[in-house]
């Protein structure tokens, strides 16, 4: 029977949606082993707001199958909640991860930095609606990006509707590692842009940004010679 062949079953899987795939996983062991990767390779986790909540697997399931994930989309204010081991991840997309990047970062436990010290008592109560992030938040964001830099197979980074906290060094090192970089409707601090320009994008094949990146275009234009071998280079003109 045709569907006894794992490759055929995997080819069938590309036409199935997640719930349908999950049904098929329950058929028998050989179907399960052939289809598990199809279910997990592209994973969206977290609960993005302003969107239909994306149903997420439990943390236990993620721990069990995180090694199958190739593309991970995090739609959540606190991506650190999903801090697990994703050794094969190639594409990381962050959506709606506004302002606070909290919790332990994505990546292996060994890569994750120790939890940051509690904010000193002199710091006014942090993380509440202030436009400038606290040192605590900066440490968290830094830890997050430090872990992302260590992901060995990362090739694409997409950041959408996200407020980036200043951690120029870690963020720009991540950018220097990827082949595709997409920055959409996100606030990228000027220091981070400068750091990206300094590090360059030696591997870049595709770079896209969407507007609302005030001043960003000029910086890139100036540094275009250091961006590297761009095969696709789309850049919106400054609108002002």
């Amino acid at each position: 029977m045709a569907l006894d062949i794992p490759e055929v079953l995997m080819a069938v899987a590309q036409f199935l949606r997640r719930g349908e795939l999950a049904q098929c996983l329950c058929v028998c062991k050989s179907w399960r082993s052939a289809l598990l990767f199809s279910l997990w390779k592209n994973m969206t986790i977290g609960v993005g707001y302003n969107r239909t909540p994306a149903p997420s697997p439990s943390i236990e399931s993620l721990q069990l199958h995180g090694h199958l994930i190739h593309t991970l989309m995090i739609e959540d204010r606190y991506p650190g909640r999903f801090a697990l081991n994703y050794p094969k991840i190639r594409t990381l997309r962050l959506y709606l991860t506004h302002t606070q990047i909290q919790g332990t970062p994505i990546g292996t436990a060994s890569v994750a930095p120790p939890p940051p010290p509690p904010p000193p008592p002199t710091t006014p109560s942090s993380s509440s609606s202030s436009s400038s992030p606290s040192t605590h938040e900066i440490d968290m964001a830094r830890g997050f990006w430090q872990a992302v830099v260590e992901l060995p197979h990362l090739k694409e980074l997409t950041v959408t509707d996200t407020d980036m906290i200043e951690c120029p060094e870690e963020f720009s090192r991540t950018c220097a590692k990827v082949e595709r970089l997409r920055l959409f409707r996100s606030h990228i601090p000027r220091t981070s842009i400068t750091a990206i320009v300094d590090h360059g994008l030696p591997l870049i094949r595709e770079l896209r940004t969407l507007p609302k990146l005030g001043g960003f275009g000029l910086v890139w234009t100036d540094a275009s010679s250091r961006i590297g071998c761009l095969k696709k280079f789309r850049f919106p003109l400054e609108e002002n």
Partner: peptide, 10 residues
Amino acid sequence: GCRYAADIVK
């Protein structure tokens, strides 16, 4: 064929 099969099993 795989699309056809998917339509059946789904």
